[in-house]
């Protein structure tokens, strides 16, 4: 099933479709680089061009943000805006393969930008060292076709959730704990939002996390983002995926909008 491509940011950047077609058409080198994925049913060169055009916000370049950014970069997603307010520390290195021992003390955004540009010099990486708050989020998400959650706390997720609702762009939620993870795809006004699913934040603590759990969930989010941009497959909408590495099982539960949701119901914010 194909779904509608989110055109708003795209159209804003490319008011003249003909122009945009010639400017953004993929080069011969790119065609070769992405050959194996261009062969995927429904992707093709047209899908590759959509990836090149897309701009995504990667909120957080830590555990899930590392694989998320890497796999979107090497897939040729044209514009990655990475946001984080943290510096690389020793205890990050078990699960954040964007960084190495030599990066300790550096801003994650700076180290990540360098690494991502090395992996794929043909894309644009915008590194923004900033905290995600009600005040900053509108600008951080400006012009983005989708918002990817790779943050480590619920208050920031609710801020991103609200920004996605206001801007009408999808928000891909993910969260992990130990060997377990969850994710869902939120399409404002079409699916439940994060607040519908979890009305309150869990208590903050230092969580147990295995790097491969972050890798699995980050890769799933990256795949979902690519499907969304290209317009292929069935999205994880109105479903919450639950991965349990202890028993090595995937399962899903149904997700429903809360008609009284303070964030996404029609009366919200009024």
């Amino acid at each position: 099933m194909r779904h509608e491509f989110p055109g708003r940011a795209w159209e804003r950047r490319n008011p003249e479709p003909l122009n945009c077609y010639y400017i953004d058409m993929i080069t011969r080198k790119e065609r070769e680089k992405y050959d194996r994925q261009i062969r995927i049913d429904g992707l093709g060169t047209e899908g590759q061009e959509k990836l090149k055009q897309a701009r995504v916000l990667i909120a957080g370049v830590g555990g899930r943000g590392s694989p998320l950014a890497v796999y979107l970069a090497i897939a040729g997603v044209g514009n990655l805006r990475i946001v984080d307010n943290d510096e690389v520390s020793l205890s990050n290195l078990n699960r954040q393969p964007l960084y190495g021992a030599e990066d300790i003390g550096r801003k994650k955004t700076e180290a990540a930008e360098l690494r991502l540009q090395k992996l794929n010099p043909d894309i644009k990486v915008e590194a923004v060292f900033e905290t995600i708050t009600e005040e900053t989020v509108s600008q951080l998400a400006d012009g983005c076709d989708l918002i990817l959650d790779a943050v480590d706390n619920f208050p920031a997720r609710y801020v991103l959730n609200n920004a996605a609702i206001k801007k009408g762009v999808p928000f891909l939620y993910g969260g992990i704990y130990g060997l377990e993870g969850t994710m869902t795809t939120i399409i404002p006004r079409k699916t439940a939002c994060l607040r519908c699913i979890f009305p309150d934040p869990p208590p903050s603590e230092i969580f147990p996390v295995l790097g491969s759990t972050a890798g699995i969930l980050g890769c799933i989010q990256a795949m979902e983002a690519i499907k969304y941009i290209v317009g292929i497959g069935d999205l994880m909408t109105n479903r919450l995926l639950i991965f349990d590495g202890f028993s090595m099982k995937f399962r899903e539960v149904r997700v429903e909008s809360d008609p009284q949701c303070p964030d996404c119901s029609p009366s919200a914010g009024s």
């Binding site: 957080g60 830590g62 555990g63 899930r64 943000g65 790779a150 943050v151 480590d152 706390n153 619920f154 997720r157 969260g175 992990i176 704990y177 377990e180 993870g181 969850t182 979890f198 934040p201 869990p202 903050s204 969580f207 147990p208 996390v209 972050a214 639950i242 399962r251 539960v253």
Partner: peptide
């Protein structure tokens, strides 16, 4: 029955 606390880690 599934009892699922929100997972917050990145």
């Amino acid at each position: 029955v599934d009892i699922l606390p929100a997972f917050a880690a990145a």
